[in-house]
Every structure is written in C-alpha cells, then in structure tokens.
Amino acid sequence: MTAVEPFVRTDNAPQRGRRLAIVHSGSYAHLYAMKDPAVLAYQPDFVYLVDLDDGGLDGYDTVIVGDRLHPELVARHAAQFRAVAERGNTLVVLGENAVHTWLPGIEWEGRPTNFWWWVTGEDPMIRTRSHEHESWQYLTSKSVIWHHHGLLRTAADVVPLLVSEEPDADGRPHDAGMMLYEDTVTTPGRIIVTTLDPMYHHGSNFMTGATRFLYALLRWIDQT
C-alpha cells in the first residue's frame, strides 16, 4: 500500500519581520481608519492610549502616534514614545499632539487653518522640499498639500519635506517653518513629524489629500 503524505498547508502568510504599532484615542476617526483594509494590510497592532502600560511599546520597530490624542496622556507616555527612536527604531508623530512640548529642540508656531484655499483660489504657501529624498517615491504633492495646523522649527539638521514659504520682512519668500520632516540625527533611530492630521480627516471623510497622505506614509515607513 502506498503511504499517504501528511497534509501540509501552503497558504499561510509569512510572519512579518517588522512590527508596527498605531497608538490611537478610540475616537470615531481613529476607529474608522483602524477598520480600513488599506491600513490593515500593514498588519499593525492598535494600541489604545488609555490602556498603554509601561513597556507597552517595547519590541515595535515602528510606532505611529495617532493625531489629536489627549495631551495629558501623550505627556504621560512621552518617554515611551521617545524611547522608540532612542532604541534605533522609527517614531512617527502625527499632527495636533503638541510635539514641541515633549520632543526636545522643537519650536512651534501656530497658523490659521484655511480649509478652502482651493475654492477661493488663495495660495496656501505650502511647498515640497528635498525632492531627492526617498519619501518622494511614495508621497506626492496632492497627498501633502491640503492644510495644516502650524509650523515646526528645529536647529537639528533634519530633512525638511514640507514647508510654508512666506514673505520675510523685505517681502522675499523664505521657508518659515516645516509641516513635515524626517530626523535621523538627534537619536539612533528615525523620527518623522508632521503638523498634518491625516487619520482625523480620513476618518471624517473630509479632505481627500489626507487619505492619500495616510496611505503613502504607511507605504513609506513600511518599505524603508
């Protein structure tokens, strides 16, 4: 009698070598993004900020701090967030999180939010920079030029990716501050900071550029 070979499954997906955590607030916008198949494709672990324990982010190669989190809870866990990059991994901080209060060396300057510049025909003064940078293999102008909630500055030699080009005292255009940058110099790891709030607008079904940015950001950090 011929021996029967044991059944072995061949359709199991391989285990990913990298682990992604997305820290969220449980808001409707975050919950919407957390059910989006395009987000789930990156197999993230969703970490509820309220339940985050000490050491809860250990072992993750990439941590995204979702936008518009509770400021007191962010401050309480700021050391954990910083530790991600200090271990040599990737920390991504989305907008409206007062990052200047818990990441060292950052200055913040608020700006009025213009939701409708594309309707009124105004120049949003948002400009892309560092076009040779790897991020532009994933980002596009449509994914980053919508609106923002202020400008960031730092003396560190970071890579500016999105800036506000405004007139100086003599009326000449200059880069007044950044809305998106990558920092690979202040820690052994990588810190990506933006004043854009893509999860909020994606989950609110308002601002198509925000959805493009969220998807492109996930591709960028996954591939690099």
Rank of each mutant, 00 (worst) to 15 (best):
F81H: 03
I126H: 06
T208G: 12
D168V: 13
T208M: 10
Q80P: 03
Y32G: 03
H201R: 02
S130L: 03
V158C: 03
L52A: 05
G66W: 04
W116C: 10
Y138P: 05
L49V: 13
F46L: 10
L217A: 01
A169E: 15
W116F: 14
L103F: 07
N97C: 07
A98M: 13
V158F: 04
L217D: 00
L151K: 14
W136C: 05
D58F: 10
E96Q: 11
L57W: 02
P14D: 03
E86L: 05
R9E: 10
P112N: 06
V50I: 08
W102A: 02
T208E: 15
Y215S: 01
A156K: 11
T224I: 09
P71K: 10
D58N: 14
K142P: 06
V144D: 06
Q15D: 04
H149I: 08
D53F: 07
G55W: 15
S27W: 04
K142R: 13
W136Q: 12
V47D: 04
Y32K: 14
D58Y: 11
M207T: 11
R190S: 10
Y181Q: 00
D170K: 15
A75L: 07
W220T: 00
S143N: 07
T208F: 09
L57E: 03
P44Y: 08
D58L: 15
Q15Y: 03
R127S: 06
P6V: 02
V185S: 01
H77I: 05
P112G: 05
W116Y: 15
L151Y: 09
E107H: 10
E109I: 11
A78E: 00
L31G: 01
H131I: 10
L152N: 10
R68L: 04
L151T: 15
E182D: 02
S135Y: 12
K142Y: 11
A41C: 00
W117A: 05
V193G: 02
W102T: 00
R19M: 10
Y42H: 12
H174R: 13
V84K: 03
N114V: 15
P71F: 06
T10G: 15
A155V: 14
T113S: 08
R172H: 15
H24R: 04
M179N: 03
M34K: 02
D170L: 15
R16G: 09
T194P: 01
D54I: 11
G177A: 10
V39P: 05
W102L: 01
Q223L: 11
R9C: 11
E122L: 12
Q223T: 14
T187K: 10
L49S: 05
L180Y: 01
A3P: 01
L217G: 00
V4Q: 11
P160C: 07
W108D: 12
Y28D: 15
H149K: 10
A169Q: 14
H174D: 09
G88W: 01
L31M: 12
V74P: 00
G95W: 00
N205I: 12
L49E: 09
V144T: 13
R219Q: 14
H147A: 13
L151S: 15
S25L: 02
E132C: 04
A83K: 09
T120W: 05
A169P: 02
P112A: 11
G66L: 03
I22F: 06
L69E: 02
R18H: 13
P160K: 05
V93I: 14
P124F: 04
V4E: 14
V159H: 11
E182C: 04
S204H: 07
W220H: 05
T154Q: 03
G56Q: 14
V119A: 14
